[in-house]
Design a protein around this nucleic acid. Structure first.
Length: 283
DNA sequence: AAGTTCCCCTGTTAGC
DNA sequence: TGCTAACAGGGGAACT
């Protein structure tokens, strides 16, 4: 499922492919895809706009156009495809075509389409403002994990006054943005912290470990092209990090070989080694 | 008021 | 084998 590293790969791919392309025509086939705009107005507003800039915040994609910022979120299974021409679009297998919810015809004849089997993804359109990170879409989105101004001290301050497990904390995008379920498990394993540990029981040193592990793992996953567990792909590529996962969806601990079993923490399927990631001893 | 549960969706898989 | 129910999970609304 697209987390920070997957979204980064999508953004870089689109920047390389369609930067400065103008939009000739737009058609939206699923109105709920649009968060804050009617289909008709959305389709009208985007004609003649160019894809100027490509940014990312957490798991959000930001397309800077001439007069608007277009904010996208792929949620579970959303993906963009670039089709070479009209014929390719017409010849698409019905199994794929039925899940295409938006189409953007570009000036060079290619067509950018948005496909999303589960229809969870969303697009929001805003008139361009100076600081896109102040847009309503980002009201509840904290600093990106890879934002160099984010410090362990900040996490410690937020965590120490909350009573909630660290897995939920890492998944909370208003705390830090970009980590999803898969990487949360990997980060906790590398930090040797149980997902059940309460944030108020963690030391500053542990938050330092967590932040360091978060950055290392997300960077590495990004270089590998992200993780493809179910369906993630972009530009015809799959990610490669699924082969590097150490704990998530694995059979045994790579360090002590303890058999692992899935459990639900923070409402998510969770893998952790009971030996290598012990709970702190209660006093 | 912060933390938890539910809901949106559909394809895949587990279980009877 | 064929059907149904459970499951997958990001984020926001609704609930406790």
């Amino acid at each position: 499922m697209p987390e920070g590293p997957e979204v980064e790969n999508v953004i870089r791919w689109l920047q390389k492919e369609i930067q400065n392309q103008a939009i000739r025509k737009v058609s939206i086939l699923y109105s709920k895809l649009l968060q804050n705009e009617s289909v008709e107005r959305f389709e009208t507003k985007l004609v003649g706009e160019h894809f100027r800039g490509f940014k990312r915040l957490g798991k959000y994609l930001i397309f800077e156009l001439d007069h608007y910022d277009l904010i996208g979120h792929l949620r579970m299974e959303g993906k963009f495809l670039l089709l070479p021409d009209e014929n390719t679009l017409e010849d698409l297998d019905e199994k794929i075509a039925r899940h295409i919810h938006a189409r953007f015809w570009l000036e060079d004849g290619r067509i950018l389409v948005y496909q999303d089997v589960r229809k969870f993804g969303r697009l929001a359109l805003y008139s361009k403002i100076e600081d896109w990170w102040t847009l309503p879409s980002f009201l509840h989105v904290g600093k990106d994990v890879l934002d160099p101004t984010l410090t362990a001290q900040e996490l410690y301050q937020k965590g120490s006054r909350k009573k909630r497990n660290i897995k939920a904390f890492l998944l909370d995008q208003s705390v830090l943005a970009g980590i999803g379920n898969i990487y949360a498990d990997e980060i906790l394993f590398e930090s040797q912290i149980s997902p059940h540990t309460l944030t108020c029981d963690l030391t500053l040193a542990q938050y330092e470990h967590l932040l360091k592990a978060s950055r290392r793992i997300l960077q590495e996953a990004m270089i590998y092209g992200g993780t493809t567990i179910r369906t993630f792909s972009y530009g015809g590529h799959s990610g490669g990090y699924q082969n590097k996962l150490r704990i998530h969806d694995q059979k045994e601990c790579p360090i002590c070989h303890t058999p692992l079993k899935r459990e639900v923490v923070a409402g998510r399927g969770t893998w952790a080694c009971p030996k290598c990631q012990p709970l702190p001893i209660k006093k």
